Computed example of a mutant assay.
Amino acid sequence: MSDTQLTVTLSGGGLDDARAIVRALEDVFGAPDGRPADERATVRTATFDSPPSPQAAPSPARAALSAPVTVTVQGTPQAVEAASTTLSHAFSTRDEGAAAGDQERERQLLLVP
């Protein structure tokens, strides 16, 4: 695995939905390599190079989405767990499955409006 702590892949929803999801993760991981910007994209990605901040707590406020968004988070076990917890606090989520390797994990969530 590279030095990247977390890769987030988003499909479904619009640009504003993708930006809201990335903003929710910024409180825990800091700024990503770039924010979603292409209105026409069907799949968007963001990578966070910083490990999850141990003192950052997920915001209790829930965000609204315009459409369902499938989110895949991939990275270190700690990063995937922190991202999953953060997203479940910020959005209505359904766990769609997980996979684990030696040093990397992946989890897929469905975020619903």
Rank of each mutant, 00 (worst) to 15 (best):
E96S: 07
A100P: 00
L110E: 12
T86E: 10
Q78T: 10
G97R: 09
L65D: 00
Q108G: 00
R107W: 03
G97N: 09
A63M: 14
T72K: 05
A79R: 06
A83I: 12
E81C: 04
L110C: 11
V69M: 09
A67N: 00
L111Q: 08
V71E: 05
E104K: 14
P68G: 04
A99K: 10
S84N: 00
Q78R: 11
S84M: 04
A67V: 03
P113W: 09
A83H: 01
D102S: 10
F91I: 15
R107P: 08
A63R: 15
T93E: 02
D102Y: 00
A64Y: 02
P68K: 11
Q78V: 13
T93L: 10
Q108A: 12
L87F: 13
A67P: 00
R94K: 15
A67M: 02
P68R: 06
A83F: 04
Q103C: 11
T86Y: 00
Q74G: 07
E96H: 01
S88W: 03
P77V: 04
V73H: 01
F91E: 13
V69S: 02
T70F: 07
Q78S: 13
A90C: 11
A98T: 08
A100K: 08
T72N: 07
L111A: 10
G75V: 08
Q78K: 12
E96R: 11
Q78C: 00
T72V: 13
V73C: 07
T85C: 10
T76C: 05
P77F: 06
P113V: 09
A67T: 01
L111I: 14
V80P: 07
V71F: 09
T70E: 15
S66Q: 11
A90Q: 10
S84D: 11
T85Q: 12
T86L: 10
V69G: 04
T76G: 03
D102P: 08
R105H: 13
V80E: 01
R105A: 11
G75W: 02
V73E: 01
Q108Y: 03
R105N: 12
G75M: 12
V112T: 15
L109C: 03
A99Q: 09
E81Q: 07
A79E: 05
E81N: 05
V73I: 08
V69L: 10
T93D: 10
A99G: 08
V80T: 03
D102V: 01
H89D: 12
T85I: 14
V112Q: 13
A83K: 10
L65G: 00
T86H: 07
A83M: 08
V73T: 03
S92D: 03
L87P: 08
T76A: 13
L87R: 02
L111S: 07
T85K: 11
V80W: 02
E81H: 06
G97Q: 03
G97K: 08
R94L: 15
